[in-house]
């Protein structure tokens, strides 16, 4: 295992070391400490690494992640795992806004709560939030699944495309074109699998499912506002 102390090394040095593993993998396990909330830690990884980050991180931690398993033992700032393609990002604390924004694949787990716009414009990843999510979560979300074990803020799933949202707690309000839909066996199975992979104990039967009413899909007069 390699240990990098960000009080002694720059984020640039750390990221370069991690990126170098793409061409030549000689160390899978990485430990990062003294993060001091710095931005862009461990972004652009593209190798099957296991990165444990001890401390809070700033914006865009594990951004565009491919293959790597990144764990943040602390809170994460804005845009954690944004545009992730594959792999897993696990935030043990809370995450700020735009967690998992535009992510195409992989799994994002947040043990605490997230701020606004969790899963905004997401394109195929899975997100499991064990606490609550803020307002406008899944705005214009296109594909993938968001699971919220707590409550969801205002305008959940506004202008939603094909992302599926499960919420166990209260939904403050649904956004335009987002509606509650029945939960079938197929959904329960998928939800159970997701909860399990995120290490969440919740009973899938207690969740409600939300999706797109698909009324905004084609441009017409009534949709103009």
């Amino acid at each position: 295992m390699q240990s990098i102390n960000l009080a002694e090394h720059s984020v640039r040095q750390l990221n370069q070391l991690l990126h170098d593993q793409y061409n030549h993998l000689d160390e899978r396990q990485w430990d990062v400490s003294q993060t001091s909330g710095q931005h862009n830690i461990a972004c652009g990884l593209n190798q099957n690494l296991e990165v444990n980050i001890h401390g809070h991180v700033g914006y865009f931690c594990a951004g565009m992640n491919q293959l790597a398993y990144v764990t943040v033992h602390g809170n994460a700032g804005q845009g954690v795992a944004e545009n992730m393609m594959s792999g897993t990002v696990h935030v043990k604390g809370d995450a700020s806004s735009a967690a998992g924004a535009t992510a195409h694949g992989g799994l994002l787990i947040v043990d605490g709560n997230t701020g606004a716009r969790c899963g905004i414009s997401m394109k195929g990843c899975d997100i499991v939030v064990k606490g609550n999510v803020g307002h406008m979560s899944c705005f214009m979300a296109q594909a993938g699944t968001l699971v919220v074990c707590g409550d969801a803020g205002e305008a959940l799933g506004d202008s939603l495309y094909e992302t599926v949202i499960y919420v166990k707690g209260k939904v403050q309000s649904l956004g335009a074109d987002c509606i509650e839909k029945p939960v079938t066996e197929k959904h329960l199975k998928k939800l159970k699998k997701l909860l399990k992979s995120a290490g969440a104990e919740e009973d899938p039967a207690q969740f409600k499912r939300y999706g797109s009413a698909r009324q905004l899909y084609n441009f017409k007069v009534d949709n103009a506002y």
């Binding site: 990221n15 370069q16 931005h39 972004c43 652009g44 700033g58």
Partner: peptide
Amino acid sequence: IKIQELREITD
């Protein structure tokens, strides 16, 4: 910060 992220990803 976003610009820095893109720079980090592209070294």
